[in-house]
Write a protein that binds this DNA or RNA. Structure first.
Lengths: 201, 201, 201, 201
DNA sequence: TATGAATGAGCATTCATTCAT
DNA sequence: GATGAATGAATGCTCATTCAT
């Protein structure tokens, strides 16, 4: 029906990033198992093979997405983490630092709905060790735990538990926020809940 | 490959429930998109067609699972809900009632790892409206919100927000608990966090 | 264009043997690498998936073909081998036994052009160890060498070399015969050449 | 995957001959159907398109290989053939000439394992008329037959049959030699067998 | 001369499903 | 109630080839 595709030659960097963005969107909708290379190629107006030219195969594509997300996150969050850690260390106010960290992460989470959704959906799937993103999420979780624990550590009596509560709030609130982002302000509410948890009203 | 299957004729009720259990396990591992009728049939030592004899098709199977889970939940939780509501209404202690509710749900959650995992994985996938379980989770969430809000409602100043916090704790903690159930006691920790949130230490 | 395939349900045994025969034909034409599951399915008037229902995958199909060929060969040749060995042992006439063996094999070779062609083409491909039929041909060759060597052994001065000559004649003549089976009589010529090689004119 | 290839600009003649050699190797391993342009390009450390720049397409590449082989063979064998023919004609010793020819060909065969393997594998595949090398092998075979027949012709009673035996020995022994070139000396054994066939011990 | 981007066609295989038995 | 045969439609991926640079 539709004649031969026009051979469009895009700037590779643009193409690559277009694919990455579109993939984050689709996987955010259907999960890794539910998404198909075909569907992604179509959305990128690319042939099936043309897409694989960039990422080799489905698994590698996923890992490339995670790498990309990590890279961007590092870029944005790392300086903030450094600053908060520094400040917390000097002031000795662990709770304050944890609150600021919570705010930074929540802000980042609310900033890009697509990315957040992608990570949320994937995290569910990736609980199973055989999932190609399983290890990635494991490491990521460990890092977050460490981060909060070290921020709280010096001060709070029960920092491991508190860390769990805070991470739970983050995840749980994110889940609710993804259902309807207009129902409440993610950053504000995460902070409010955290204040309660830290007895810091 | 494997020799001709012996035509085992099980009691249909037993078979059905065996399939349900096995399906909960597999979908809990791979999600709905990632699981295959074939894999389920194999685990049930049933032919592909033999399995579909019970549930018609993949979608119907999923809905049957959800129905079944709802039924069992109703059976166990409904009386407790009634009791807690009654007690809370009489005592006027909304926070206490909410805490008891939290405990009841957390207990139920910790009770059956497979079911909990199934629900967690599915919940991620089902955020997308096109997912066959989307509506089911929507209704379920609404009910939970209503439940907590009504329990807290009369007493707490900001019950909608508190409800959100509590549900977040529930979900978030469940997620962490699914990673490693030996790291902490789900019921205790949910309660502890809730007490902090309710300023009820 | 051509409406939905009529769902023809053949006797499984018939189907299986039809597939085997057709596969031997196609692989005999294009080799294992050159043949496609699709092409075979078409010739069997079966869907792609319908074919794989019987043999699982391409490699397994090939091994099944080789098994089948071995089975049939065993059936036909084994009694002859036994008889020739017995007779050779009693008469002490190793050359005569070798000649008879040659005749038996050549007869078998000339009997079914398709099978012979299949084996010839495959033998070329299977020289490479990575080929799925490599081991099979290795074993088969060893057996043939042993067979001739043991038949000749007691009598001939240089039986390993003579065995090589005879096997070479068999293979080489078979190759020529496959080009044009009407050019000469495979059995007669194999025997004539063997007589020369054994100095038994 | 691998970083951007360095654009190496080799002497075209060197490149071409490198490709030819590598192609002979790969096709000798997997046959024409089993070999891929991709694999060849990789082994030549060339891009896919870079390779086809030299040979246009897969079929043309094959024909170029055969041409090249023929050219080299001509170069080496033609003078020998002329000499043997001349000598045989003058001496009237057809058998001797045939033996010398056999030696020359066997020597050539044993000289370059890769080329021999290539020809052996291809010959199997090329029995089918649709194979791109079919005609080439047909002509080649005819020439060899003519060559031996004419050398033997004047003297031997049954030169067409003898020619067949000799060619069979050549092919068959080559096949065995390719399995394990250390098991026997190809030239010596071909000659020994030929002497027996020619009753010329 | 050589590349990377891109494609259409094809590959083996899997999947959910149907159907006659 | 349960099976094996069978299918159409995918699925991820590979292949030979083209094209602009």
């Amino acid at each position: 029906m539709s004649g031969p595709r026009k051979r469009v030659r895009e700037d590779p960097k643009v193409r690559r990033s277009q694919i990455v963005d579109e993939a984050i969107r689709i996987i955010g909708e259907y999960g890794y198992y539910g998404f198909t290379v075909q569907a992604l190629a179509e959305r990128c107006q690319l042939s099936n093979a043309g897409l694989l030219h960039y990422f080799g195969n489905k698994d590698d594509l996923l890992l490339a997405l995670l790498d990309e997300i990590e890279r961007r996150e590092e870029e944005v969050l790392a300086p903030q983490v450094a600053m908060i850690e520094e400040k917390g260390f000097q002031s000795g106010n662990g709770k304050g630092a944890a609150l600021e960290m919570m705010a930074a992460i929540a802000r980042r989470t609310a900033e890009n709905r697509e990315r957040t959704r992608f990570l949320a959906v994937l995290q569910g799937e990736a609980m199973e060790p055989s999932h190609p993103a399983h290890d990635w999420f494991g490491l990521r979780d460990d890092e977050t735990v460490q981060l909060f624990t070290s921020l709280l550590g010096r001060e709070a009596a029960n920092s491991p538990a508190l860390t769990r509560y805070m991470i739970s709030i983050l995840r749980g609130m994110t889940g609710l926020w993804l259902r309807d982002e207009n129902e409440f302000d993610l950053v504000e509410e995460c902070l409010a809940a955290t204040r309660l948890l830290l007895n810091d009203a």
